[in-house]
Amino acid sequence: MKKIFKLTDEKKHEDRVLESVKHDIRKYVKREKKKKLEDAKMTYWDFDCKVGATPDTAKVVDFDELIKELDTVKETGATECYVEILAKVVDKPIKEVPESSEYETES
Rank of each mutant, 00 (worst) to 15 (best):
V60K: 12
D39I: 11
K92S: 06
F47S: 05
C49G: 01
K6A: 09
A78I: 08
P55M: 11
K30P: 00
K92E: 07
T43C: 09
E38R: 13
K59S: 08
V83F: 02
S101K: 08
H13P: 07
R16C: 10
R31G: 08
H23M: 03
E65R: 13
V51P: 02
I94R: 12
C49E: 01
V61Q: 09
Y103C: 02
E96T: 13
K68F: 09
A78F: 06
H23W: 01
V51F: 03
V83K: 02
K30Q: 10
D39R: 15
D91F: 11
L70I: 07
D46S: 14
K95L: 07
K50A: 06
V21R: 03
K3M: 11
E32C: 05
E32I: 05
Y103T: 09
L7A: 06
K12G: 00
C81G: 04
Y44F: 15
I85R: 05
H23I: 01
E32H: 03
L37T: 03
K33S: 12
D9G: 02
K41L: 08
E65I: 11
I25L: 09
T57L: 10
Y44K: 15
K30N: 10
E14G: 06
H13C: 09
A53T: 13
I85Q: 04
K95D: 07
K22T: 06
K68G: 04
E96N: 12
S20D: 14
V90A: 06
I4R: 02
R16A: 13
T105K: 12
S100K: 13
E102R: 14
I67P: 00
Y82P: 04
P98Y: 10
E10R: 15
V17M: 10
V29Y: 06
H23Y: 08
E96D: 12
K92I: 12
W45R: 05
I94E: 15
I67V: 12
D24C: 04
E84V: 01
G52R: 05
L66T: 04
Y44E: 15
M42F: 09
L86N: 11
E10P: 07
V89F: 01
W45S: 04
C49N: 01
V90F: 02
L66C: 03
K3P: 02
R26S: 01
G52K: 05
S100V: 15
H13Q: 15
D9W: 04
E84L: 10
R31Y: 08
F63L: 02
F47D: 03
E10H: 14
K88F: 11
E96Q: 14
I94V: 15
C49V: 05
E102S: 12
I94W: 03
Y44C: 13
E102N: 13
K30L: 07
K33G: 07
I85S: 03
K27M: 09
H13R: 14
M1R: 12
M1L: 14
Y44S: 14
E106I: 14
P55S: 13
E99R: 12
K68E: 11
F5M: 10
D39Y: 15
V83M: 04
K3F: 05
V17G: 10
K2A: 09
K2Q: 14
Y103M: 10
I94P: 00
E38Q: 10
S20C: 03
K41D: 09
